[in-house]
Simulated assay, not measured.
Amino acid sequence: MIEVIGVSKDYGSFPALQNVDLEIKKGEFIAVLGPSGCGKTTLLKLLAGFMGPTAGSIVMNDSMVASAKRVVPPEKRNIGMVFQSFALWPHMTVADHIKFPLRHHPNSRKDSKRAMSLRINETLALVGLDSFAERFPAELSGGQKQRVALARAIAPLPNVLLMDEPFSALDVELRMEMRKEIQKLHRETQASIVFVTHDQSEALAIADKIVVMNKGKIEQIAPPELIYTRPETEFVATFVGKCNVVKGHWQDGRFVPAIDSKSSWPDLGVAEHFKKKGLYPVRPEQVRLSLSTGTETQGRITYVQYQGHEIHYTVEAGVETWTVHEPISSPRFQVGDAVEISLKSAPKPEKDLVFS
């Protein structure tokens, strides 16, 4: 169990983190998601012990490891760390990279050479590198280097694995493959994982829970499906999935969009924050387009992008710009077409819906 309690971090006069509260349960996979400069890497450095908070405290397994007055250094915390760069030592073989933390990590025991050799072989087999033990980093591909970095971090069985955008140096195909590797490692090691990323699709795909950050603050903490279907702020809505935030007003529990005062949309679990501001978040795939009959024109197609399984449209609707995703089987529209915009019917989610 890790508890981040009222943590703030200032760099001079700049507040990098502001009163952050976060709880990470044993075995939980947390993705910290946000744009550059939002504070996510600062939070990871505080968890690792690379620096201390300006205010607040961090507790790991009922032990205070960081406060404004005292910081337990990284080598005395039971953590594993995977850096944005692979951070491999060019003079060490793959096996030596795994051996190093087994000798020096605070969680490692003084096992016999045979026991250490067995652990090295187990770890390499877990990441699919058992036949690469004697190779040096210069002899490995990018994906293999990343696997070595992962193996080095998990070898001493840390309670928490901290990962700072570990796939940023990999191409798209390798990133997809490494997502599967991380999920496999999580299942088999049962370690808590804190995974920092700016890639929303990565966070949605692999995490148990997502922490969305913006300007040093946490905007929302929830499982991926709730982050996507029930955003609580405009930032979460537009950063995760490029939601359309529609203007209008709420009346008798239904939403009346400004672009069509004759229509009313049902409450599909919209957060109170949006209701108070007269807004309605609509995902691109929740919108239906149809050719205008001439009297009900609400928008005009300005961009069309073919994406294989669906078509992406950009629609100018008065002062608003909408993003709409239609399946490939739907009627096609061209740039300049006048269209009507409506909301696709969808079941209202249960208010007490819980994802484990």
Rank of each mutant, 00 (worst) to 15 (best):
Q251C: 15
F235M: 03
E225M: 09
I221N: 04
Y280V: 05
N244H: 10
S117V: 05
S264D: 05
K25C: 06
R109L: 10
L279N: 05
L22T: 13
V212C: 00
H186S: 10
I98Q: 01
S264V: 12
A68G: 09
V20N: 15
L185P: 14
P35K: 00
R135G: 07
R254P: 02
I30E: 04
G6P: 07
L204C: 04
I182K: 00
E139W: 11
E234L: 07
Y306R: 05
D352F: 11
V196W: 04
M92E: 06
L226Q: 15
Q146Y: 09
L174T: 14
L150Y: 00
Q286N: 14
Q307G: 05
K262Q: 15
G248M: 11
V4G: 04
I79H: 15
L174W: 15
D260V: 08
H273Y: 14
R109H: 01
Y228A: 12
A258W: 10
F132R: 13
Q18H: 11
L47K: 14
S57I: 00
L161M: 07
L291V: 06
K277G: 05
A115H: 08
S292M: 11
V148E: 00
S13H: 13
E181H: 00
K69L: 15
E285A: 03
M163Y: 03
H198V: 12
